[in-house]
Computed example of a mutant assay.
Amino acid sequence: MADHNELGKTGEAVAAKFLEEKGFDIIERNWRYKQKELDLIARHKNYFVVIEVKTRTTDGWENPKEAITPGKIRFIVEATEAYIMEYDIEEEVRFDVVTLIPNGADWKIEHIEEAFHPTL
C-alpha cells in the first residue's frame, strides 16, 4: 500500500479513537458507495453524523480541510442519502470534518462540527 494510503488509514483510526473519546458511537468505517466511500459514520447525542477525515503530513501546501471540495461534498451527501434509505435512519443528519496532521509522536487534530450543509 502506498505511503499516503497508510497515512490515511492511520489518520482514520486516530480520528475514530478521538471521536469515541468524545462520546461518538462509530457505526461504520469506510462504507462503500459506488467507487468511493464515507470515512466514518457515527451517532452522537441525537445526531446521525457522517465524518470526512482528512490527513496530511503538513499544512504547508494545503490545510486538510481545504481538500473538501464542492464535488466531494456532493458525493458525501449522495452517499449519505443512500445510507439513510438503506438503513432507514431517522435521526437528524450532521456532516463533520476531522483534520489530522502528525506532530512528532502525537497528532494535531481539528474537529469541525457541522462543517457543511447539503445544498438544496
Rank of each mutant, 00 (worst) to 15 (best):
H4R: 12
H4P: 04
H4S: 15
T10I: 11
A13S: 14
A15R: 11
K17G: 03
L19W: 11
D25Q: 12
I26V: 12
I27G: 01
E28L: 11
W31P: 01
Q35I: 04
Q35M: 03
K36D: 05
A42W: 03
R43N: 15
R43W: 09
Y47P: 01
F48D: 12
V49D: 08
E52A: 13
V53A: 07
K54F: 05
T55M: 08
T55Q: 04
W61K: 13
N63S: 06
K65Y: 11
K65V: 08
E66F: 06
T69Q: 02
K72P: 00
I73F: 01
T80K: 05
E81R: 14
I84W: 08
I89F: 00
I89Q: 04
I89W: 03
E90P: 00
E90S: 09
R94A: 04
F95R: 09
F95G: 06
V97L: 13
V98H: 10
T99C: 09
L100W: 08
P102M: 09
P102G: 06
D106P: 00
W107A: 09
W107K: 13
W107H: 10
K108V: 02
I109V: 14
E110D: 14
E110A: 07
I112A: 02
F116R: 11
H117Y: 15
H117F: 13
P118E: 04
L120H: 11
L120S: 11
